[in-house]
Design a protein around this nucleic acid. Structure first.
Lengths: 145, 145
DNA sequence: AAAGATTGAGGGGTCAATCTTG
DNA sequence: CAAGATTGACCCCTCAATCTTT
């Protein structure tokens, strides 16, 4: 499948470039950015660990490791859920919010430069729609796995 | 950028599904498959380490680790280049060729099921072309990194 | 027992430094 | 010194097992 091989290569090249630029300019791992973004969008700037796992498509343990690092860096706090004491929220701290605000412009420029500027509007639409469909098909049912 | 987020998610979900299915049915890491494929296509069923790094978009050290494992599994041999003794070839062994032949059908079916069958022919063409363009733009010049 | 989350062990990749040959 | 490749230290993520709360 030619389209899949091309996607694999583009993903490898692109995520490496984005990671380098984000770490160089803002000293943030690429994976943190997505978490900061999700938390910032969320009501109360906080999400359950489980919600983060679903949204990011990481495993629960992956989310735990990630939040560990971000807590240590002071960007996020763990808050026990009062109504269900098994659960925790990851809550954005002021420092985390500030860090996201600082990193956003450069990162968005990187994405635009390496990805967006290479695509016509129509291509971008096609890709967004097709990729979403693929993700839904896999996470929606999972027959084999 | 919506298209980029969707691509990121699709890649995460898809590569996880493919990895699980390939490991379950054929007991092969997903990353080995691409190397076996490249070697099999290559003249003499062998490639220089450097060529593998370029083709797969892994770093040189990544290729070394990968080949280490495949040599240990008997799928590949390291062959010193006679005309330039700094270099090495990774050469497919008969066992490696057989392993690829055994794994191919199931893996191709996985790709078709999770990826190809979700796309129209036109979408697949658009994606293949656009993604190739993105890869070329990054690896071709690299202004920032 | 089931759900939410974490921990220990391990795979797989990167970078910077190193070794060898040209 | 430059090029091809490898090594050591390290990061990130996953799986299976575990702990706590429901």
């Amino acid at each position: 499948m030619r389209a899949w091989e091309a996607t694999l290569h583009a993903h490898a090249a692109l995520s490496r470039a984005l990671r380098h630029e984000l770490e160089e300019h803002e000293d943030i791992p690429l994976s943190w950015y997505e978490v900061l973004l999700l938390l910032n969008r969320a009501p109360g700037q906080r999400l359950r660990m489980q919600e983060l796992a679903d949204s990011t498509l990481f495993t629960p343990s992956g989310v735990t490791r990630q939040i560990d690092g971000m807590v240590e860096a002071g960007l996020v706090e763990r808050v026990r859920c009062q109504t269900d004491k098994r659960g925790f929220f990851a809550a954005l701290t002021p420092a985390g919010k500030e860090r996201l605000r600082a990193a956003s412009p450069a990162h968005l420029r990187s994405i635009q430069r390496h990805f967006g500027s290479q695509l016509s509007d129509q291509e971008a639409d096609t890709i967004a729609e097709a990729m979403s469909r693929i993700t839904d098909a896999i996470t929606g049912r999972c027959p084999g796995a």
